[in-house]
Design a protein around this nucleic acid. Structure first.
Length: 509
RNA sequence: GGCCCGUUAGCUCAACUGGUAGAGCAGCGGACUCUUAAUCCGCAGGCUGAAGGUUCGAGUCCUUCACGGGUCACCA
C-alpha cells in the first residue's frame, strides 16, 4: 500500500520534469540516445590533445596559406562548439577555449560518410576535440581541416543567442557559467581580477612582506564597525562570528615580531546589498611596523599606480563618464576641510555643533547613537563622498568613529587615519594604529557605551587584543583595501556584482 | 526597508488609447562541398513571473506576492 502510494508520486515528479523539457531539449535527448546506440561515449574519461585553440591562434596566425600548406601541421584541439554552418556535404563550425575561437572545416569526403552522419547529431554547445591539418580558407581564416572528431561532453540545453549573448542580468549572475560561455568580455574581467591579485602579492612580497592567513571565524568580531554573521560550533558549544575584518589578528602578528604582514581574503558583513556592497567581499589588509599613516599613503599610491601601469599600461583611466588620473602624488585633504570644500554646503553651517547635529539627524534614521563625530561622518557620506572622483586621501576623520586609530597629536578629536576615495567610492582605510593598551581599553569602553545606546555597529570589547597590546605593539601603519571595488575601478565596471563571480542572490522559488 | 522600473518562445526583443501574442537567432524537415550573424523553402515552439480582481473581452487596467535592476536609507 505504502509503495503504491509513493510510486505514483515519483512518477509525477518525473513526468513534471519531462514535461518541463523544451522541444529543443527533447531533440538533444533523442540525439544522445542515437549516439549511445552507436556505442559512442559522450563523456570520456580523458582526451589526448596537442594544442589549445588559443595556442593555435597564437602560434600559427603569422603563417601564410602557403607556409601552412607546406608545414602540414596536424593538431588535436578541444573546444566548445559555438556555431555550426552546415552546407550539405561540408560543414564549418567554430570551437572556443577560454580565450580564442578556431574554425573547423568538415568534409564528408575527408572524414567519411558514416562520421559525417554522426556529426549531424552534434549540437552547438557540445564539447569536442578535432584532429586535422591547419590551413587557411579562401577568406584567409586559420582553420582545421578535420580528419576526425571526438565527443568530450554533450550539452543538453540550447545556448543563448549567438549574436546578443546572454543579456538578462539576473540569469548572468545565477548561471555565471552561461555568462562566461557566451560573453567573452566578462571572462576578461575575471582574468584581470586574477592578474591584479597576483601583482599585489608580487608587490608586497618584493617589499619584504609575508602573506598570512588569520581566522575567518571569530569568537569576538572585531577590526571594523559593522554587523557580523553569526554561526555556531557544535563541539565547543559556542557562538562564532564570521570575521568582519582580519585587523586585530594581523596586529597581533606585528606584536609577535613579523614586521610586515598582509592578507588577501574574504570578510563578511551582515548588511545591505548594493552595487558597492556584497555580504562577502575581498579585502587586502597590510600592516607595517615602524611606520605611520603617511607611509601608508605613499605605499597606497605606489601600489595602485603600479597596478594600473602594469596591467593597463597607463596612469589615466576611464571610469564610466569620468577620467581618473592615477598620476602621483594624489590629493591629500583633511576631513574637516573636505567637508567645506566638497559638500556644497556653506562653511558657516559647520561652525556650530548644534547645527551640524541637526543637519545630520535629518540625514539618518539612526538618531539614537548620533554623536558629533558620527554626525560629521554622516554628512561626509551624504554630501562629499560622491564628489570625490579623483583619488583623494581624506585625512583625520573624527576620533570617535576611529576606535582603533591613534588620535592626532595636534587635534585630539581627530584620528591619524585616512580614507582613500576614488570614483565616489571608498577604496581604502588606514591608520597609525593605536598601540597604547590603556587608551585602547578606553576606546573599547566608549564603543561599548555607544552600543548600549543602540549603535549596533560599535566595536566590541576584545580584552585578548588589549592583552596583546600590553606586550608592546611598535608604531605601526595599517590599511585595508577593498579589492572588489579596486577591480571595479580598474576594469571600469559599475556594479560589484560584475567583478564577483558568484554574487549573493536570493534563491529563486 | 521606502520609492521607481522590469519579468512575453531556449535566447534577444516587438505587440498603439484593453480587441485573434509576433520577429530574429536557436530547433525540426528539405536543398546546398570555402561558410562565417551562411543562404533558400517549409514546420513546430507561449497558461505573457504567480495568485486574485475589474471587464463582453486583459500581455496591456487594479490588488497582493516572488525575483531582479535602479535609487534612497542602512553600511566604512
Amino acid at each position: 500500500m505504502i509503495e503504491k502510494k509513493v510510486l505514483p508520486e515519483e512518477e509525477n515528479v518525473n513526468k513534471r520534469e519531462e514535461s518541463k523539457k523544451t522541444d529543443q531539449e527533447a531533440s538533444r535527448q533523442v540525439k544522445v540516445e542515437r549516439l549511445s546506440r552507436e556505442g559512442i561515449d559522450l563523456f570520456p574519461h580523458n582526451v589526448k590533445t596537442t594544442h589549445s585553440a588559443s595556442d593555435i591562434v597564437e602560434s600559427f596566425s603569422p603563417l601564410s596559406k602557403e607556409e601552412l600548406e607546406e608545414k602540414k601541421v596536424i593538431v588535436i584541439v578541444p573546444g566548445r562548439i559555438m556555431s555550426i554552418r552546415r552546407m550539405g556535404r561540408a560543414t564549418f563550425f567554430h570551437i572556443a577555449d577560454s580565450r580564442s575561437r578556431l574554425q573547423v572545416y568538415l568534409r564528408e569526403d575527408k572524414i567519411g560518410k558514416k562520421n559525417y552522419q554522426l556529426f549531424s547529431l552534434v549540437d552547438i554547445g557540445d564539447i569536442v576535440s578535432v584532429k586535422g591539418a591547419l590551413f587557411r580558407t579562401k577568406t584567409e581564416e586559420l582553420s582545421v581541416l578535420a580528419e576526425s572528431f571526438t565527443f568530450l561532453a554533450k550539452c543538453f540545453h540550447p545556448l543563448p543567442e549567438k549574436w546578443h549573448g546572454l543579456q538578462d542580468v539576473e540569469l548572468r549572475y545565477r548561471k555565471r557559467y552561461l555568462d562566461l560561455i557566451m560573453n567573452p568580455e566578462e571572462k576578461e574581467v575575471f582574468r584581470f581580477r586574477s592578474a591584479m591579485i597576483t601583482d599585489i602579492k608580487k608587490f608586497f612580497d618584493q617589499k619584504g612582506y609575508i602573506e598570512v592567513e588569520t581566522p575567518m571565524m571569530h569568537a569576538i568580531p572585531g577590526g571594523a564597525l559593522a554587523r557580523p554573521f553569526k554561526t555556531y560550533h557544535n563541539a565547543l558549544g559556542m557562538d562564532l562570528y564570521l570575521r568582519i575584518a582580519p585587523e586585530l589578528y594581523l596586529k597581533e602578528l606585528i606584536v609577535g615580531g613579523f614586521e610586515k604582514v598582509y592578507e588577501i581574503n574574504r570578510s563578511f558583513r551582515n548588511e545591505g546589498i548594493s552595487s558597492e556592497h556584497n555580504p562577502e567581499f575581498t579585502m587586502l589588509e597590510f600592516y607595517q611596523a615602524y611606520s605611520d599613516y603617511f607611509d601608508m599613503m605613499d605605499l597606497t599610491e605606489e601600489l595602485i599606480n603600479d597596478l594600473s601601469l602594469t596591467l593597463l599600461g597607463k596612469e589615466e583611466i576611464t571610469y564610466g563618464e569620468h577620467k581618473i588620473s592615477l598620476k602621483r602624488p594624489w590629493k591629500r585633504i583633511k576631513f574637516k576641510d573636505v567637508l567645506v570644500e566638497y559638500s556644497g554646503l556653506a562653511p558657516s553651517r559647520f561652525q556650530d555643533r548644534a547645527g551640524v547635529m541637526e543637519l545630520a539627524s535629518t540625514l539618518t534614521s539612526d538618531k539614537k547613537s548620533l554623536s558629533y563625530g558620527k554626525a560629521l561622518d554622516v554628512i561626509f557620506d551624504k554630501y562629499v563622498k560622491q564628489n570625490l572622483i579623483q583619488p583623494t586621501f581624506v585625512m583625520n576623520p573624527p576620533r570617535e568613529v576611529s576606535p582603533l586609530a591613534k588620535a592626532s597629536k595636534e587635534s585630539p578629536d581627530e584620528a591619524e587615519r585616512f580614507e582613500l576615495v576614488m570614483a565616489g567610492m571608498e577604496i581604502a582605510n588606514a591608520f597609525s594604529e593605536l598601540t597604547d593598551p590603556e587608551e585602547q581599553k578606553k576606546r573599547f569602553t566608549e564603543q561599548a557605551e555607544a552600543r548600549k545606546k543602540g549603535d549596533e555597529d560599535a566595536h566590541w570589547i576584545d580584552m585578548d587584543y588589549v592583552h596583546a597590546l600590553e606586550y608592546g605593539l611598535p608604531p605601526t601603519g595599517g590599511e585595508g583595501i577593498g579589492i572588489d571595488r579596486l577591480v571595479m575601478i580598474l576594469a571600469n565596471r559599475k556594479s560589484i556584482r560584475e567583478v564577483i563571480l558568484f554574487p549573493l542572490l536570493r534563491p529563486k522559488e
